[in-house]
Design a protein around this nucleic acid. Structure first.
Lengths: 211, 211
DNA sequence: CCCGCCATCCCCCAAAAGGATGACGACGGA
DNA sequence: TCCGTCGTCATCCTTTTGGGGGATGGCGGG
């Protein structure tokens, strides 16, 4: 059996590297991996997947301009039949990992993994397994226990302005509401995040990848 | 003429990619590039450079654990004879670019560049030119006009705690000083950064890569 | 139709943060 | 030695934030 793979990464260098690492990788053990195409953007990934029908799409999360890896994953999983999507990225922020999994990714690998680990991850994902880089698994489980608080859209909007260092008055002007409303949103944000100051709120929001 | 290159990147995949892109790259025009070694950490880069004596060291900025790309650059330039150092990274934060240049890097390329651009950058750097990814040049010039304000060590320390969302009282306790001292540091930080609130200070500090 | 969530707004009050200004010792370079 | 910078601390005063309430209208699900 040979597994067909589509590479999605906005960096030509990384695509070459994956090609070198995977395509030659007809290891003694396990199925052979054959790269059938490359995409530099999420949009390109979707159209190529529709025509090439790869078994696995290996997708970066950060894709420069255009839709990101999570949106791409969702779009790919909406195809019929949906390919197996494996995320391969440098970052390991909780919100992104959870987001990718919710969007239907079957795996989440880190780029600093050894080539064999990536190869093995693709094989396992193609076989129907759920595959996570070591260390991420426990994080995901913890994330399940302490689910990220759900902020409303408005609250996220306020949070973003907060992260830019805007004062309440400034936020109010930007959103065309009164300062009282902003303070109300902030109070909700604080309780949801379990903090008691704007700075700390921004900090945990950054940490969890909420913004 | 053939240019010898040492690759420094903590990601095996990226090293493979660069090897594929550069080593085969005996283009019709210009010198051939020959990769003589690879290093996964800054420390390894320094020892390998001492023995392999490459013409050019192509170095990532983020190197996982251990010393970062800027420190590595400085260490490399302290060797005799110093190699030409070219930074190749995904990030383009002002402080890092300026820092790399100050540390003695001859070039700063972005990973999303086309393979030929990277190849050409290495050739130009080896020839003694200063090479910057398009777009970065203007940024650097702007950075020269608006130099990053110099914060003292203590101020940076306060800034870090600020970024974690600590209150003045908390910062004071952490640094074993009074709150008055903290406020004094903050006032200095604010004027140097040209802001008027802790949140905004954190924001510009993050933007400029000050922290 | 009622209930819960959301966004909006209001008041009061205590705490924190910020601005202005000044001072003092240590240290290092001119 | 004198001057500048740094780190330390202080006081006074104003503004901003955060916490405690509560109130309104809209909108969607049971």
């Amino acid at each position: 059996m040979t597994i067909t793979v589509l590479l999605v990464d906005d960096h030509p260098v990384v695509r070459s590297g994956l090609r070198a690492v995977l395509d030659g990788g007809t290891a003694r053990t396990g199925d052979a991996v054959h790269i059938v195409g490359e995409a530099a953007t999420g949009e390109e990934a979707v159209t190529l997947t529709a025509t090439l029908r790869p078994d696995v799409v290996l997708c970066d999360l950060r894709l420069g301009a255009g839709i990101d890896g999570i949106q791409t994953t969702a779009a790919l999983r909406a195809l019929d039949p949906p390919p197996t999507v494996v995320i391969l990225t440098t970052f390991d922020r909780d919100a992104e990992i959870l987001g990718a999994i919710e969007a239907g990714a079957a795996g989440y690998l880190l780029k600093d993994a050894a080539p064999e680990a990536i190869l093995e991850g693709i094989r396992r994902a193609a076989a129907g397994d759920m595959v996570l880089s070591p260390g991420l698994a426990t994080r995901v489980l913890k994330g399940m226990r302490n689910p990220l608080p759900k902020l409303t859209e408005r609250e996220i909007e306020v949070l973003r302005l907060l992260a830019e260092g805007s004062a309440n008055k400034q936020i109010a002007r930007t959103l065309f509401v009164t300062e009282a409303t902003v303070k109300s949103h902030l109070a909700h944000i604080f309780t949801k995040l379990g903090v008691d100051s704007r700075s700390r709120a921004v900090h945990v929001a950054r940490e969890t990848g909420l913004i």
